[in-house]
Simulated assay, not measured.
Amino acid sequence: MLTLAALEDAATVVYNHMAPTPLYHWPLLDQHTGCQVMVKHENHAPTGSFKARSALVFMEAMRRIHPAGSSFITATRGNHGLSLAWAAQLFGFQMALVMPQGVSPEKVAMAQAHGAFVIEHGMRFEDAQAHAHALAAEGRHAPVPAFHTDLVRGCGTYALELFRAGPAPDAIFVPIGLGNGLCGVLAARAVFRAPTRVIGVVSDRAPVYARTLMGQAMPAEPGLPTFAEGLNVTVPDAEALATIRAGVDHLVEVSDDEVAEAIRLLFRTTHNVAEGAGAAALAGLRKEQDEWAGKRVAVILCGQNIERRAMRDILAGRTPTA
């Protein structure tokens, strides 16, 4: 388990390059949920998502091991790679990103604008990941894992801010991809010994963590695709799973329709743009809002990098196709 010193060291690295993100209370959002909702605005981070923090902490650690100009490689659908490309530039590194074919041109352009060399390979994320591993094995690039202690430490800095902002909330709803963000929140809760319940939110189209924790076998083939790409994980990380199993209060599954409605609600009540994973925490709260009536609840708006096509469909009342 991470210590307060480990999280504070990570925060020092983060604040050298970005400001803390706001925690705002939106009264109009309260009216739709029946509770006092505090939104942690990770969409205000430099790359539009909380992953800017984890990328900074990881790359700062790599600076002590690798010389300037070293090249790193990772597989990504978007935010993970975008944030690493941004942080790599700051620390004098090169970044290669392997993305599945069909990733939106917007995401590719954003990554390239931050200096990344983009390789498109395979139709699924797992195909891109296998190719990134193969290229790293050739020795030209150092691999960046999708789950790592330094990534968790970086994520934990937003939870550090949240718990220091005032009385501990009764609950925090956290979206789950591979689990870095949720593990960071669990670490911060443990450090502060807060009574806050931590609820993880997964897509019902990619429920691998929820089903695994319930002891249910997952089908051999991956489930349906989801437009909330940050939640689309088909194979859990063993270390993340152990941490989540030991600390999370429970998990809730949300549908693409529920996520789309949460995006509309966030835009209508706060005028903030959320990507699918970014709105998942609010979707989870709304699914359980009767339980939290009158309580103080935080939701993590983890990112804003939604495609124009998807946002257009959502504002028109439709749910985007994946």
Rank of each mutant, 00 (worst) to 15 (best):
L7D: 04
V14R: 05
Y15R: 14
N16T: 07
N16P: 04
M18K: 08
P22F: 07
P22I: 05
P22V: 05
W26S: 09
L28V: 01
L28R: 12
T33F: 10
T33H: 13
G34Q: 11
Q36T: 15
V39A: 07
K40H: 04
K40S: 01
K40M: 11
H41L: 15
G48M: 01
S49C: 02
V57T: 02
M59H: 08
P67G: 11
G69M: 06
T74N: 10
T74H: 14
T76I: 02
G78N: 05
N79T: 10
H80A: 03
H80G: 03
L84P: 03
A85Y: 00
A85G: 06
M95V: 05
G102W: 02
V103P: 01
V103A: 09
P105R: 07
A113G: 13
A113P: 02
H114K: 12
M123T: 15
D127Y: 09
A130Y: 08
H131N: 06
H131W: 11
H133I: 04
A136W: 04
A136V: 05
A137R: 15
H141Q: 12
H148T: 06
T157D: 04
Y158E: 13
E161A: 11
R164C: 14
D170I: 06
L178K: 01
L186R: 00
R189I: 04
R189F: 02
R193Q: 13
P195H: 04
T196N: 03
R197D: 05
R197F: 00
V198F: 00
D204I: 11
R211C: 05
L213G: 05
M214V: 06
G215N: 13
E221I: 11
G223P: 10
P225S: 11
T226S: 11
E229D: 15
L231P: 09
T234A: 10
P236S: 06
D237E: 14
A238D: 13
A238P: 04
E239M: 10
T243Y: 11
I244V: 12
R245L: 03
A246Y: 01
A246I: 03
G247E: 06
H250N: 08
S255P: 06
V259A: 13
V259N: 12
A260E: 00
E261F: 11
R264S: 07
G276V: 09
A277K: 00
A277C: 12
A277N: 01
A279K: 00
A281R: 02
L282M: 09
K287L: 12
Q289L: 15
A293L: 11
K295L: 12
K295R: 15
V299H: 03
I300D: 09
C302K: 07
Q304E: 13
R309K: 08
R312G: 15
I314F: 08
A316E: 04
P320C: 03
